[in-house]
Simulated assay, not measured.
Amino acid sequence: MKKDQLFTRRRALLTGALAAGAAGTAGVFALGTGGTSKAPAPPAAGAPAHRVPQKPSAYRLQPLTGYGPPHAAPARPPVRREPLLRISGRGNTMVLTFDDGPDPRYTPAVLDTLREYDVRAMFFVCGEMASYNKDLLARMADEGHVVGNHTWSHPLLTTMSRAQIRSEMERTSDVVEAAYGERPQWFRAPYGAWNRTTFQLGSELGMEPLAWTVDTEDWTTPGTAVIVDRVEKGAAPGVVVLSHDAGGDRSQSVRALRSYLPQLLDSGYHITVPRRQYI
């Protein structure tokens, strides 16, 4: 083949390749405007074409909602039809629970007594109270106590919408996580007023519903001796005792704890906190 003919053939092939590339590019833009062109052919082998880096779009500089490390999804317990009233365990185990706090007037004294006897308890906190007393939640974490969710503002949940109940629960769990170090795994409805929605939402948020076996009714301020008597008469394996460290004058509750706690221990009871039955 002559030299000029070979040159002409190469030029024709090159011209055809450029035309095919232009058609492929036109196909890309056509798709963006509602066209139905076929996808462009893959580029020929060889050195990549030089590209001018594009400036990032403004919206790409803004973090997307929920961007960042994902929160670990809480283990979801079963949806129950009634709250747990007792705990299972070997021997004479009991659980002491305190509601409505933390209150800087009474909660520190309760924690001091528990620390003196090396006992762990449960505190079902209200988010509004916890938001003002995060140092007490941090102390509970340091001393091995369990913090549960008792809603944000202690409302009667059975009169509220699903969205309102979820807000009460979630806001409290957020405060607990920030101050205590982890989200609560237990939930207690104010006034012991449960319904299907509270059980469903509690499960969705990874919390078990825990009620009580012995109610000291200390919120009525019946007297220190009466509170002590109710605890001692109700003591039994698996019992969950309800007291309060906030919500009013709780000086009787503080004094009663100092009296009945050493007596329970001397009687062979092991004061503990419940363990979840699943991961």
Score class of each variant (00 low, 15 high):
A58R: 13
T25G: 13
P108S: 08
T224L: 05
V95R: 02
P63R: 12
D174Q: 13
G91V: 06
H150C: 02
G101H: 02
R258K: 13
S57Q: 10
V175R: 05
V110I: 15
G202Q: 05
R276W: 03
K3A: 11
L111V: 07
Q252F: 01
L136M: 08
D215G: 03
S167I: 02
D112I: 05
Y132Q: 10
G46L: 10
L242F: 03
R275T: 15
T216C: 02
K233G: 04
L114E: 04
R188Y: 04
T33H: 12
K233L: 10
A235P: 03
V254L: 05
G89V: 07
P69L: 14
G34H: 03
G32Q: 13
D215H: 02
A193P: 02
T65H: 10
I279Q: 13
Y59E: 11
L201A: 03
A121N: 02
D229C: 04
L85N: 08
S167Q: 15
L18E: 04
R76I: 15
A130C: 04
F7S: 12
V239T: 12
R86D: 07
L13P: 00
G21S: 05
S243M: 14
A72E: 13
A75D: 14
M122Q: 05
F187R: 02
F29N: 08
A72C: 06
V147Y: 03
S251V: 04
A235G: 05
G91Y: 06
A189M: 06
G181H: 10
Y132C: 03
Y260I: 01
A23F: 13
M129V: 07
R81V: 06
A23K: 05
G148H: 00
A130W: 03
K3E: 06
I87V: 15
S57P: 02
P56K: 12
A58M: 11
G35N: 07
E182R: 15
L257S: 01
R115N: 11
A12K: 10
R275N: 11
P222K: 05
P48H: 10
R196G: 12
S253L: 00
T216G: 00
G223E: 06
F124I: 03
T97C: 01
D118I: 01
V214D: 00
P63Y: 07
T33N: 11
V176W: 09
A225S: 12
R9C: 06
P190I: 06
Q185R: 15
P104I: 07
A73I: 14
A49R: 15
R255F: 00
Y106A: 03
Y59V: 13
K233H: 12
L210I: 15
D215M: 01
